[in-house]
Design a protein around this nucleic acid. Structure first.
Length: 310
DNA sequence: AAATTGACCAACCGCAACTCG
DNA sequence: TCGAGTTGCGGTTGGTCAATT
């Protein structure tokens, strides 16, 4: 059997994060930054494994997360990048500031994939489905042809489902190369040529990111504005994780306000609110707690989260 | 009103790559 | 070079909610 998970081995807590746990993790990371994830749970007072903490921070707590619905520009960019990169969600996410690979992956699987299929486009190849079917038929009729429909270098292209089993079997036997999906490393390098040294698709993305900036969904000057999901969470809800989804759409409005405002309708636990306000004031006032190399000081007061390791 | 179904998404799992002594 | 520990990644699972039957 596979190895035990670190959580199971250490009898650590699993499942959804409670607001208290979020609070502890957020407090710790914003104060000290990330050194070694494996030591974070202990230092932050959490009964979680470091891996779980890292994931929670990256996918949910990180202050520079954009959240909210994907814009048309983002959707188009994801589709374009997926066509070029396949299911390399981390690389795709790297081109979308404020988005996580998990978020993009979920969005792709739940929305974009289906949308493309509705449009008659194969989500794996990004080619019209009819075209693929025609090619399948051609491949089936041509016994000498290879049963590989994978486009150049694309790792996710499926072997034709309509392929004649016998010819497939024959071709599998006749050539060992047929057994493998051909992966062309040049494909990526060709793609990379269009990527500038910073890892961005220079022309397309510069335009795209201008739009992002104009959207101003990430508000670097507003300190904790990127944490509204936490602070506006209805704690009476038993579905803790829903705090992110139920309030995602409110985030944009909140961040546009410049500073986080609190109204009586939000059900923020008052202690937690004070807690965040306290940290904000404290961190804005002083950049304390520099304690050697490992203690990276949070700089959210200036909106620079580049020090947060991922 | 209850059961079923589908959509959505947070979190887990396991593997590979990386780091360091 | 090796091995243990850590990090990063992509696939998958499971819980929740809303819509439908």
């Amino acid at each position: 059997m596979g190895r035990h998970s670190c959580c199971a081995k250490q009898k650590l807590k699993k499942g959804l994060w409670s607001p208290e746990e979020d609070e502890k993790l957020y407090n710790y990371i914003t104060r000290y930054g990330v050194g070694c994830w494996s030591s974070v749970p202990k230092l932050a007072g959490l009964e979680r494994c470091g891996k779980s903490c890292r994931l929670r921070w990256i996918n949910y707590l990180r202050p520079d997360l954009k959240r909210g619905t994907f814009s048309h520009e983002e959707e188009n960019l994801i589709i374009t990048l997926h066509e070029a990169l396949g299911n390399r969600w981390a690389q795709i996410a790297a081109q979308l500031p404020g988005r996580t690979d998990n978020e993009i992956k979920n969005f792709w699987n739940s929305c974009l994939k289906k949308r493309l299929m509705k449009q008659g486009i194969d989500p794996n190849t990004h080619k019209p489905i009819e075209q693929i079917q025609v090619k399948d038929e051609q491949d089936c009729t041509n016994s000498d042809s290879l049963p590989i429909l994978q486009p150049k270098g694309h790792p996710n292209f499926p072997i034709s489902t309509q392929m004649d089993q016998e010819s497939y079997h024959h071709s599998m036997q006749s050539s060992s190369s047929v057994c493998k999906q051909v992966y062309d490393p040049l494909f990526l390098s060709e793609f990379q040529e269009s990527v500038d040294p910073n890892g961005y698709l220079s022309t397309f993305l510069s335009h795209f990111q201008q739009n992002l900036v104009s959207d101003n969904q990430i508000n670097p000057s507003s300190g904790f504005n990127s944490m509204p999901n936490l602070t506006s969470f209805d704690y009476s809800d038993t579905s803790v994780s829903r705090m992110s989804t139920s309030l995602i759409n409110e985030e944009k409005d909140i961040s546009n306000c410049g500073t986080f405002s609190w109204d009586g309708e939000n059900k923020l636990d008052s202690v937690f609110q004070l807690y965040f306000n306290g940290i904000q004031a404290e961190e804005t006032k002083h950049n304390l707690f520099q304690e050697g190399d490992k203690l990276q000081l949070n700089e959210q007061s200036s909106g620079d989260y580049s020090n947060y390791q991922l």
